[in-house]
């Protein structure tokens, strides 16, 4: 249930983000979801893409610092309070969240990408509490209606 997230280190330079999307476009890789964290000197682009291994390979080929990071995608119902509940479950088990962002909001559930301090423990706790988790394939294609 671990998902490969493609992370890219980007200097704060005009056009650098576009360079990344250009490479992915040229290789027909779909970006299902992303988050961009920024500091004064650089940014960290984290993406769920249709083919993370290939994405990493081509970005590195183009000279980017790219790596794959394991994350999880948990499904929560689209109702008030559900995000709070899942966070409480994790927090009660002394698991902290390094970062998170939305993967998909279509359908009845929202899927959330999470990087937890202890991924195995997080998976176990979430399963125990009957939370649905995206498989890797599901996550990579979740927002791609035309995916082959």
């Amino acid at each position: 249930m671990l998902i490969k997230q493609l992370s890219v280190f980007i200097e704060n330079k005009q056009g650098r983000l576009e360079d990344v999307t250009q490479v992915l476009k040229d290789h027909n890789i779909n970006i299902a979801s992303f988050s961009l964290a920024d500091t004064s000197a650089y940014g960290m682009l984290r993406m769920i893409v249709s083919d993370p291994e290939e994405g990493k390979r081509i970005l590195k080929e183009e000279g980017f610092s790219a790596r794959l990071t394991d994350v999880i995608a948990v499904k929560i119902p689209q109702m008030p309070g559900t995000l709070h509940e899942v966070l409480k479950v994790l927090s009660d088990s002394e698991i902290s969240i390094e970062y998170m962002y939305t993967l998909a909001t279509a359908g009845r559930d929202t899927s959330i990408i999470m990087k937890a301090s202890d991924l195995d423990k997080a998976l176990m706790v979430l399963k125990k509490h009957k939370y649905g988790l995206c498989t890797a394939k599901e996550a990579y294609e979740i927002n791609n209606l035309n995916c082959k």
Binding site: Q5, S7, F9, A37, T39, Y42, M44, R46, K60, S65, R67, T69, E98, Y99, K115
Partner: peptide, 15 residues
């Protein structure tokens, strides 16, 4: 230069 060996995708580690 950020080398792959030392690259983390967590801002905290980079800082």
């Amino acid at each position: 230069e950020v080398e792959e060996r030392f690259f983390s995708d967590e801002i905290r580690n980079l800082e």
